[in-house]
Simulated scan of single mutants.
Amino acid sequence: MLAVVFLLTFVSLSSAATHSLQYLYSASSGIPGLPEYISVGEVDGVVISYYDSNIKREVSRQSWMAENLDEEYWISETELDKYHEVIFKENINILRKRFNQDNGIAVFQKMYGCQWDDETNATDSFEAFGYNGEDFMSLDPKNMTWIASIQQAENTAYRWNRMEKSLPHRKAYFQKDCADWLKKYVSFVSKQMSMKVPPEVFLGLSHPWTYRQHICVLCHATGFYPKEVNITWKRDGVELQDGVNMGETLPNGDGTFQKRATMTVSPEERWKHQYSCEVTHKSGKPIVLDHEEDHLSIIEVV
């Protein structure tokens, strides 16, 4: 459901020491079965908080959030969500008129947050709005100025730039407070997972009829923390580039992460060479599994 709602995307930093905090607000109209307003908070891609217009309260999505933040925090965040819910619904009506839309589906979104490198202590921040899947306007946090992405946003950007100068607390949030909160959340996770958790690694073979001329072998690492991991397919000890598809590092929902890499090989080449998957993680020595029948599970790769 959230994949449908949150259409704005941002490029995340790939540094091994970079953490991110982001909040996603979305108001919609004309989508049956979907709450008219949704708010989600994420740390390093893991959902930490959730609110929607049906439940009318912000709730924790991680045990370490609930354990470290008191009831006053959740009451305060709920009140902010209720305020944003009203504003975002009003903005839907304003934007319908601005885009000459009488009815149909309308989705207004906001994403904001920050990134922090725990080695260099460098920080960065962002805020942007989108309407019906297209960029609307975004904030330049260094100069605290709004930049319109389309003509319909120019008047809003002009008015907000005049108002921005009278809101010093926003500048303080993007240049310091956001990173301070992110560091606090990361410390919560560190306390819960003070020890590095090694990955479990599995090899899986697709059913033969899935790929008629090629066989797809999956190397899946899961349950590891922190999130940085490297998966390498090798042939006769040499790293493979062709025929390898590397997936993204994804959260498991319990604070740990997973990642997979697939290798495609012809049936003829499969047994002519020695293939192996090597998973490197800071929790310990590299884990190497050879492409042999006793290491393979039956997994349907789609």
Rank of each mutant, 00 (worst) to 15 (best):
E134S: 10
D70T: 11
I75R: 13
I75V: 11
C114N: 14
T123D: 00
Y131K: 06
E90V: 04
A106V: 15
E127L: 14
N100S: 14
Q101C: 02
F126T: 02
M111W: 10
N132A: 12
K97F: 00
G130E: 05
K97R: 11
E71W: 02
E134H: 12
G104Y: 07
D81P: 00
S138W: 03
K110M: 04
F126R: 07
D81W: 02
I150R: 14
Q101A: 05
R98Y: 09
T78D: 08
K142N: 01
W74R: 09
G104V: 05
T78W: 04
D81M: 09
Q115F: 13
I147G: 04
A148M: 10
F129T: 10
N132T: 03
K89C: 07
P141S: 04
Y131N: 02
N121D: 12
N103C: 02
A148I: 11
E119Q: 12
Q115G: 10
G133F: 06
I92E: 02
S138M: 04
Q109M: 12
K82F: 01
M137N: 08
W146Y: 13
D70C: 04
W116M: 01
F136W: 14
L69T: 03
D102Q: 12
E72T: 11
E85D: 12
Q109S: 11
A148T: 07
D117M: 06
F108H: 11
W146G: 10
L95D: 03
S138D: 04
G104W: 03
E134M: 13
D124C: 02
Y131P: 07
R96Q: 10
V86D: 11
Y73I: 05
E71Y: 06
I75E: 07
K97P: 05
E72H: 10
K82V: 04
V107W: 06
